[in-house]
Amino acid sequence: MKTESINIVQSYWSKSYQSNQPNFGWYNKAYHYMSWTLSCLKLSQFYKHVNLVTDTPGAELLIGKLNLPYTSVSCELDKLSNCDEKLWTLGKLRAYAIQEKPFIHVDGDVFIWNKFPDELERAPLVAQNDEVEYPYNFEVMKILVDSGFIFPEGVKTVRPIIESNAGILGGCDIDFFKFYAEQTSYFIKVNEERIKNLQGDTATINTVLEQYLFHELAAQKGVPVAHYFKQNITFRNFDIFNRFASIPHEVQYLHALGCYKSRQETGARIARCLWYEFPEYYDKLADLIKNKIL
């Protein structure tokens, strides 16, 4: 049964998708489109309000070509046309900032087979899970500290480094998201030259900008964060996000994280789910790809 209890939001900044990793990080482009299609359709099974924040090319793709059933579409991300596309999280941050009602933002590589638990829908803040002392996160933070990055007042930069995974991110505390938007904007502005001068890929700061600052600012404000996964997730049990063989009875939530996204088997499993549950969308996608419209 669909519920009206909370708004679901997805965001798609086409400039970032088109300019970054080959095939948008997927094994091939077809799996990227199938992922967005399956993600939206599964959300629409359980929620009456699934809203899209995108730019004009994104709307042409997801609405015009894929015909995904979003409740509303905003081209707010057209305002990011002059921004650095390597900072892919800017699209998500903007989508968070413009929300005026309780919401849960869901990435386009997250799939659900049940509505979110009631305690998540009622929580002040929501995230997928805590990432406690992940080596990559610590290494990126060290690079930023060594490069002299300036952080918002009160945000610590010492271990333990904990980030809130933003596969889902949202909550009922809209005032916090206004504060969060101010602080992330400050971080970008005050570090503009440092970001440009980063050795290697400037995209490395995305998770710090979105996930680390979210966790630290929530802690600073004393706002509790509810998590979909309450257990400690390490690389030993990381496959909890990719258990396609266990849906829908044992597992109702999957997230094709970066380490899974590039694998052919992950894309094939998504394709199989789309073909089985939404054959008309699968056939349409196949035709669009065959005729080189996508």
Results as ranks from 00 to 15, higher is better:
P135C: 09
A30F: 05
V140A: 09
F111G: 00
Y12H: 12
Q99T: 08
G200Y: 03
C40V: 15
L38E: 06
A256D: 02
M1Y: 13
K86R: 12
A59G: 12
L66R: 10
W113P: 03
L38D: 04
Y136L: 06
S35Q: 08
P102T: 13
G222F: 14
S5T: 15
D130C: 08
L294Q: 05
N137P: 00
I150Q: 15
D109V: 02
F214Q: 00
K42W: 10
V106D: 00
R194D: 06
E265V: 14
T89L: 05
G267M: 00
F214V: 01
V158M: 12
Q45H: 15
N23K: 06
W275I: 06
K284C: 07
G148T: 02
L61H: 14
V155D: 03
D78E: 13
H32A: 10
T71F: 09
V208D: 01
M1N: 13
L43G: 05
L41M: 13
L125N: 00
A218C: 14
D146Y: 02
G258H: 03
F116Y: 08
P152T: 06
E85S: 15
L38M: 12
K42E: 15
C75D: 07
E121Y: 03
S74F: 08
I247S: 02
N114D: 15
N197M: 14
W26D: 01
I247H: 01
T204I: 07
T207A: 04
L80S: 14
F229W: 07
F138I: 10
M1D: 14
E153I: 12
I240C: 09
I168A: 02
C83R: 06
A286L: 06
F238C: 11
E4P: 08
V9H: 04
L217E: 05
D130M: 06
Y27I: 04
L213I: 05
V208W: 01
L38K: 05
P69A: 13
Q21R: 15
F229Y: 10
Q10S: 14
F238E: 14
I168Y: 00
D201Q: 08
P22T: 09
A59R: 11
T204G: 02
Q231M: 14
A268W: 03
F238D: 13
Y276F: 10
N51I: 11
N232D: 08
Q10D: 14
V140E: 06
V106Y: 01
I150Y: 14
I233N: 01
L80A: 13
R263M: 11
R272H: 15
Q10F: 11
N242I: 02
N51L: 13
F235W: 15
I195H: 01
S262H: 03
A245Y: 12
M141W: 00
Q264M: 08
I143T: 01
G170Q: 00
G64V: 12
F46C: 12
P224C: 06
T157W: 03
G58H: 09
S5I: 11
E265C: 13
I240P: 02
L285Q: 03
D84V: 11
Q252R: 14
A30E: 12
N129C: 11
E76D: 15
